[in-house]
């Protein structure tokens, strides 16, 4: 346990200091959310209808944006070999690493989602449901992006490949998380159900993605 805690602390520190922490993904997220209304048009009604989808999608993009770094650098600089031999095993190391990455890079995402929801014309209630959905979705989205990152670590144009691999796998989480915001906005009473489904899909990714990432990374070491 203390080994995992040490690993978590190091990865948190590294993505904070070396990777710029949450600043990059947050700035990217904000830029996307600023441009979207300019593309959609100023109609308040259209904007409010599009809000849950656009905001969830912006988060998905910002989770993908830095996924290349997650395992790419470790593969290149030899850290991966050391983690593989470190004791806890690659799957746990991958889980801890991705969790630290998710926390360090995406912690402002629910806040951004809440205020963006208000700015797009959603009610405070709907904005809150959406923010809660995205807070539940973010770990799962990062896990899947990390899995794709592990598969394409060290490859040319890994960024493109990651997006292509991760997109279909992220479909359920995207649907449920944005669905929570939409259900709250439309008052269908299904926001809670959507939140539960988001949590379930995210948890599943939390269990399966590290194992998949470890299998992919082990193949890369051989």
């Amino acid at each position: 346990m203390s080994a995992l805690a040490a690993l978590f602390a190091r990865e948190l520190r590294l993505s904070w200091a070396g990777g710029g922490g949450a600043a990059g993904p947050a700035a990217f997220n904000l830029a996307a959310l600023t441009l979207a209304p300019l593309a959609i048009g100023p109609s308040a009604e259209t904007l409010a209808a599009a809000a849950p989808g656009v905001i969830a999608f912006a988060l998905l993009l910002s989770a993908l944006q830095s996924a290349e770094r997650m395992f790419g650098e470790d593969t290149a600089d030899g850290t991966l070999e050391l983690y593989a031999l470190a004791g806890p095993g690659l799957a746990l190391a991958a889980l801890v690493k991705m969790a630290a990455f998710a926390l360090a890079s995406l912690w402002p995402a629910p806040l951004i989602a809440f205020f963006a929801g208000l700015a797009y014309g959603l009610s405070a209630e709907a904005s809150f449901a959406l923010a809660a959905g995205l807070a539940l979705a973010a770990p799962g989205l990062v896990m899947i992006a990390g899995f794709a990152g592990a598969l394409s670590a060290g490859l040319k144009r890994a960024g493109l490949l990651i997006a292509l691999i991760a997109a279909p796998l992220q479909v359920p989480i995207l649907i449920f998380a944005s669905g929570a915001g939409r259900a709250a906005a439309e008052g269908t009473g299904l926001a809670g159900a959507n939140l539960m489904m988001t949590a379930a899909a995210s948890l599943l990714a939390l269990v399966l993605a590290p194992m998949g990432a470890a299998a992919a990374l082990k193949g890369r070491l051989e």
Binding site: F147, L151, P168, L169, V171, P172, I175, L204, L208, A216
Partner: peptide
């Protein structure tokens, strides 16, 4: 090997994707 890992992940996900899209 990488392809095998991805295909297995996809197969596990397929029913969930189907369900979520229906939902």
């Amino acid at each position: 090997r990488s392809g095998a890992v991805l295909a297995m992940a996809g197969l596990i996900n397929l029913p969930i994707i189907k369900f979520s899209v229906d939902w």
